[in-house]
Amino acid sequence: MIDRRDFLKGCLACSVTAASISVVGKDAFAAGSFEGYPDAMGVLVDLTRCVGCRSCEAACNNEQKLPDPDLPFDDQSVFKEERRTTDKAYTVVNKYEIADKDTLFRKMQCNHCNEPACLTSCFVNAYTKTKEGAVIYNSKVCVGCRNCMIACPFNIPAYSYSSPTNPLIKKCIFCYDTRLKNGRPPACVEICPQQVMTFGHRSDLLAIGHERIKNDPAKYVNKVYGEKEVGGTSWMYLSSVDFDKVGLDNHMQNEPIISNVKDFLGMVPMVLSIWPALFTGIHLLATKNKGEHGDHDHEEGDQQ
């Protein structure tokens, strides 16, 4: 990812000499997607184990020093409607009633994509994908355009709209500052009484996920959600029902979101290089026989 982003930077900066760069560009694009940092950590969430106790929400609230919730964390009435992450809650648990099956709960938080849409859509580069796998945010440069909220395929980033002077993006950062940096699992994983979440290297987690499916194919849907979705995510899910039924889009593209705009961005240096000559040429053709070098004005001859 770093390579491509640097490449794109080069494209814009060196647009004048873009012809040669874009030849390189094709190879760079053909090289495929960024697969994630080799030592990136992740979390495997096994939805079949979750009982909806919401202790992860409480732990997150405490760890990230978020404001007190409107209803206490042991209040089950919040399950009446589907909630999303907000500037006051970086993770929320939702309840899904499945016909003929048990009720399932799913915790949602930032999935920490390998090639995050929030990061690649940000025009001030406020996001960073750390080598540990976390997608973190630099509040010092954020302008508040909220393009990341538009771009995030999981609808995770929230904005503290209520602050008039310092509104910011608020989202799960994998407890990067306080825990992940030091090799510790995030607060929600540690507190979970059901061991719903397994913390580890992403590559190991993938193996564990597939192993569980293999050992009990009747229990699980044969898919680790997040393995391929939008280029792969650090947080991944196992489920006993179709992922659509627990609020995860089953038709998510496998390419990272930035691949949708690559063609357009690749065209930019071409337009910058070709258009000047093209349109100056058209001008010469169009005005060839129309008087002295096409000069004209609102006030013809006023300076003679």
Binding site: R5, L8, L12, A13, C122, V124, V261
Partner: peptide, 24 residues
């Protein structure tokens, strides 16, 4: 914009050149 006083940031403070909005 949440923080309109930072409007010049994509020009002078921090570049995100892979972003379409940067181009805009």
């Amino acid at each position: 914009l949440g923080q309109p006083w930072r409007l010049p940031y994509p020009m002078v403070v921090s570049w995100g050149p892979a972003s379409v909005l940067f181009l805009v």
